[in-house]
Design a protein around this nucleic acid. Sequence first.
DNA 1: ATACGTGCAAAGTATTTGCAAACGG
DNA 2: CCGTTTGCAAATACTTTGCACGTAT
Lengths: 156, 156
Amino acid sequence: MRTILVIVSRRYTDHVPWTAHALDVLDDAGYRSGGARRAVVELLGRQNCCLSAQEIFDRLRGARRPVGIASVYRTLDTLADLRLVKRIDAGDGIARYEPSPPDGDHHHHLVCRDCGKVEAFSDPRLERAIDRVADGLGYAVEEHEVVLTGACSDCL
Amino acid sequence: MRTILVIVSRRYTDHVPWTAHALDVLDDAGYRSGGARRAVVELLGRQNCCLSAQEIFDRLRGARRPVGIASVYRTLDTLADLRLVKRIDAGDGIARYEPSPPDGDHHHHLVCRDCGKVEAFSDPRLERAIDRVADGLGYAVEEHEVVLTGACSDCL
DNA sequence: ATACGTGCAAAGTATTTGCAAACGG
DNA sequence: CCGTTTGCAAATACTTTGCACGTAT
C-alpha cells in the first residue's frame, strides 16, 4: 500500500512537478482545497504553453469537470499573486496564463500576426542579455516577458 | 511670411519627426485630414513613452481639444495597422500605444508591480540578442516587445 | 456633391464582484 | 459548525460599432 502511494506520487511529480508545488504553496498560504481551484491547477500543470481563462473554462467543461468562469479567474488571480503563474499578453486583449517555471527554465512567446497562433521559444543567450540589463535599472526585477510578433511559417 | 512658416516647420519636425512622418503616411494611405485624428497623432508625437487610450482622451480634453473616445480608439487602430504605433501591454489589461520609432531606436518597458508605473529602457545588446534569436525561428518577425516587471526604486 | 471623419450612445468582450448555497476541516 | 470556496448573475472596465451629422476634397 504505502509503496504504491509513493510510486504514484513520484510519477506524478515527475510529470507535473509544478502541480504538486503549486498545491503545496496554496496549502502553505492557508488556502483550503476546493474542487474548482484544484481542477484549474491540475489543468495548468499539464500545459506546455499558455491558456486563456476561457480556454481553461472550456477544457474543464469538456473534461466533465465544469467550474464557474469566476472560479477560473479567481484561481488565476490567486496563483498570480503567489507568483505560481505568469500572465502573458499576446497583444490581442486576452490574458493568458501559464505555470511559472523554475528559474532558468523560462520560455517566451511568438505570436502570429495573421492567425493569432501563440508558440513558445527559448534562448539562453537572450535570457542572459535580459538578466544583465535587468541588473542595471534600479528595479528589483522579478519577471520578464518577451513577445515576438510576425508571420508564422503557415501564414508567410 | 513664407520664411516664418519654413522655420516653424523645421523646428517642428526637428522635435517631432514622427508626427510629420505619421501624417504623411496617413495622407499617402488615402486618409483625409480630420481634426480628431490629427490631435491624437500630434499628442502621440510628443510622448517619450506609451499612453493608454483613456490618457490620450483625458489629455486632449485637458488641452481644450476634446475628441470622442471612439476617435481615439479608431485612430490608434489605424495607426497600428500602418505600423505607425506599437501596442504595449504592461500586464494590467490596459492597452498602451507609442510611436513606432525608426529602426534601431527601440526601447522597452519596465513595469512596477506595486505602483503600476511604466518606464522605458533600452539596451543595444538586448536588441542584438533578440534579432539573433528571431532569425532562427521560421517566422517573419516584425516586432518585438520586452516587459520587465518588478518593484521600482520608490516601491522597494 | 460625395465620401470620409467624428461624436455620441449603444453594444460587445473580458474580467471582477456580491451573494447564497455547498463544502472541507 | 464555521469559515472558505464555488457558481450564478449582476456589475464593471475597456474597447468596438452603428448611426446621424459635419467636413474635407
